[in-house]
Amino acid sequence: MELTDADLVARVLVDDDQHAFGELVRRHQSTVRGLLRQLTRTDLALADDLSQETFLRAYRNIRSFRGEARFSTWLYRIAYNSFREDARRRKEFLGIDEQQLQAEQDPHVSDPGLKHDLMHALSLLPLHERSAILLCCQNGLSHSEAARVLDIPLGTVKTNVLRGREKLKRTLAAWGPT
């Protein structure tokens, strides 16, 4: 029988079982790295550095995981905080979106398919809408879970998801009805 995330966390807490923690990393590395790749706008090296930082922080602070939320939600919160702190350090957190949006709206970018267009359109969204879309629409978090991860009011999350989704639909309108 496969152990649940809660079982593995208990093993880490009681026995400091690093193999159990390794299993948690293996289970969640793809979603955490995927989230950070989107947040960092596909800067793979930075995303992987932040992903490592996320899991190391998770290990150091695993006693603060209360089990009220899913382990993945708790990880997303750490990942988002790592990203935000790094962005602040780089002084890119505010004001970068519009600038980068202009740079990325290069008419020579090739569009090999709907998936590519969708991910490209996603990367063009402002950070607050992109984060909400990534958590709620791509990773299946509820609005209230995303509000906890992003540390913003529930209503703001709902608005950001709605706006982001509408923008994506408009961008993809050329592909016909979605």
Binding site: Q18, F21, G22, Q52, F55, L114, C137, Q138, L168
Partner: peptide
């Protein structure tokens, strides 16, 4: 759009990531 977003998200192979964290 949610469905397409989920389908567009690729599974990222571990490629030694877990070992580096450990």
């Amino acid at each position: 759009v949610d469905r397409q977003l989920r389908e567009a998200a690729p599974y990222i192979d571990d490629n030694g990531f877990t070992a580096r964290v450990l």
